[in-house]
Design a protein around this nucleic acid. Structure first.
Lengths: 238, 238
DNA sequence: TTGACCGGCTTACGGCGTAAGTCTACCTGC
DNA sequence: GCAGGTAGACTTACGCCGTAAGCCGGTCAA
C-alpha cells in the first residue's frame, strides 16, 4: 500500500497522465522498438504506470492507434496558402512522405481505419481547398487528392520494406536473385540485377511518380476536363 | 487414445493436410469472419485438426499470411499478351481491384511485408514485361507500374472503409457531418454534404484515377521521356 | 466534515502464437 | 514379415496480449 503510494509519486518524467502524453510516448516507443512491440503494458511501464491506467484516457488500443496516426498527420506541413496549387500540393506530398519515413510503422496503418482526427482532417481540408481554389470541381479535387496521396503512401510503403542505405539496398536485391530464375521472370530478373549491381536505386525518389500525377492533373485542369466528371468521393478516410 | 485415433479419421471434408489446403481455408475463413478473427486455432478447428499440426506445413503465422496474399495475387488475371500496353495494364489493374474487393482483408496486407510468392512475382513480371515491350526503360517501367499499382491499392483501401451500398454510403457520410464544422473544414464539409445528400459517390469508380495515371504514362512515352530518367526500383515488394 | 468522483491500482480471464516433446501409422530395405 | 526410420498428426505448457471488474486513496465542492 505504502509502497504503491511511493511508487506513484516517483513516476518518471513529468506530470499527470493525459491522452496527449500517452499518444506521444506511444509514438516514440513505436519509433524505437517497432510497432508490433508496442503493448499497453510496455507503454504503461515506459510511463511509470500500470497498463489499466491508460484506459482512463484512451478507450481502446484502437483508439490509441488512431491517436498515433493523427499525431503523425500533425507533423505534415500544411500547404502554403499563397503558393500556386501545384507547388503547394507538391510540398504537401513531400512533407507527408517525410513524416511517414520518420515513423515507418504509420504507413500501413493509415488506410486501415477511418482516420478522422483533427490533424488528418486539417491535412485533407487543406489539400482539398488548394485544389478547389485552383479550379477543380469538388469531385475532381477529391479524385486528384486521392491520386496524390495514394502515390505517396504506396511509394513510401515500398520504400520502407527495403533498407535505405544504398549498400544494403543492393545487397538485399542480390539476396533475392535466386528467387528470380531468368526463364520465368526475365524482366523482373533483369530489373533486379540492375538494382543488385548498384547501378540503380528506384526507391530513392518520391518526386518522380508524384510529378507524373501532378502533371496529369495540370493538363486536365488546362484542358477543362476538371470541371465536370461524374462523381466525387468523401475523403475523410485516410 | 482410441478417441484421438477415431477423431483423426473423421477429419471433415477430404484429404490430407497441405500448405495449399491450409492457405485456401484460411482465405475462406478470413473472407467469412474477418481477418482479425483468424487464429491458428480457429483455422485448425475448421480443418478438423489441432493448431500445432498446421506448423508441419507452414513455418509461421506470417508465412501463412504470405501464402494468403499470394493466393489473392493468383486471382488477378494476367494482362493479355496480344493487347496494346495501355488496355493490357488497364485490365490488369481492374482485375487486381476486383480481387482485392473480393478479399477485403488482403488490401492492407499487401505492402506490409515483401511479397515474393510465385503468383505475385508473375503478376509483377507480366506488368513489367508489357511496359518494357511498349518502349519504357526498365526504370521507367518500374516507376510506371508502381504508380498504377499504388493507385489501385490506395483507392481500394479507401473504398473498403465505406459501406458499398449507396444508401448506407450516404448515411455514413451523414453520420460524420457533425465532426466537420463548416468554419474549420469548409471544403471538406461541402464535399461530405454532397456525399451525404446522395448526389455523389466518389468511390464507385476506380477507373477514373487509373486513366489519369495511364494517360500520363502514355504522354510520357509519346514525348520520349520514357527512355531515360535516372533511377529504377526493384519491385519485388508488393 | 462529508461524500462524490477522478485517476490511479490489482486481480483475473480468455485467447493468442508457438516451443518442446510424444505417439502412431506408414514406408522402406532386409 | 519384420526392424527402423520418418512424417504428420497430437498434447502440454509458457509467456504474452487486451481488457473487464472492482478497489482505494486524494482532492475538492457543498
Amino acid at each position: 500500500m505504502a509502497r504503491a503510494v511511493r511508487d506513484r509519486k516517483r513516476r518518471p518524467s513529468s506530470g499527470p497522465l493525459s491522452r496527449a502524453r500517452i499518444v506521444a510516448e506511444a509514438v516514440a516507443l513505436a519509433d524505437r522498438h517497432g510497432f508490433q512491440n508496442l503493448s499497453m503494458r510496455s507503454l504503461a511501464e515506459r510511463l511509470g504506470v500500470e497498463a489499466m491506467s491508460l484506459y482512463n484516457h484512451v478507450v481502446d488500443k484502437n483508439d490509441l492507434i488512431d491517436g498515433m496516426v493523427d499525431h503523425v498527420a500533425g507533423e505534415i506541413a500544411l500547404p502554403a496558402r499563397e503558393a500556386p496549387w501545384k507547388p503547394a500540393l507538391r510540398q504537401r506530398a513531400l512533407s507527408a512522405h517525410q513524416a511517414l519515413v520518420r515513423h515507418p510503422w504509420a504507413c500501413p496503418l493509415i488506410g486501415l481505419r477511418l482516420n478522422v482526427g483533427d490533424n488528418m482532417l486539417a491535412h485533407v481540408e487543406a489539400g482539398l481547398a488548394r485544389l478547389v481554389e485552383a479550379g477543380f470541381s469538388y469531385e475532381m479535387a477529391d479524385h486528384a487528392m486521392n491520386a496524390i496521396d495514394n502515390h505517396v503512401r504506396g511509394f513510401t510503403l515500398q520504400q520502407l520494406n527495403f533498407p535505405i542505405e544504398p549498400k544494403k539496398f543492393a545487397q538485399t536485391a542480390q539476396d533475392y536473385l535466386p528467387k528470380l530464375p531468368p526463364e520465368t521472370y526475365p524482366h523482373l530478373r533483369n530489373l533486379a540485377e540492375r538494382v543488385a549491381s548498384g547501378a540503380y536505386d528506384g526507391l530513392d525518389d518520391v518526386s518522380f511518380g508524384l510529378d507524373l500525377v501532378l502533371d496529369g492533373l495540370e493538363r486536365l485542369l488546362r484542358d477543362g476536363g476538371a470541371a465536370s466528371r461524374s462523381s466525387p468521393g468523401f475523403s475523410g478516410a485516410r
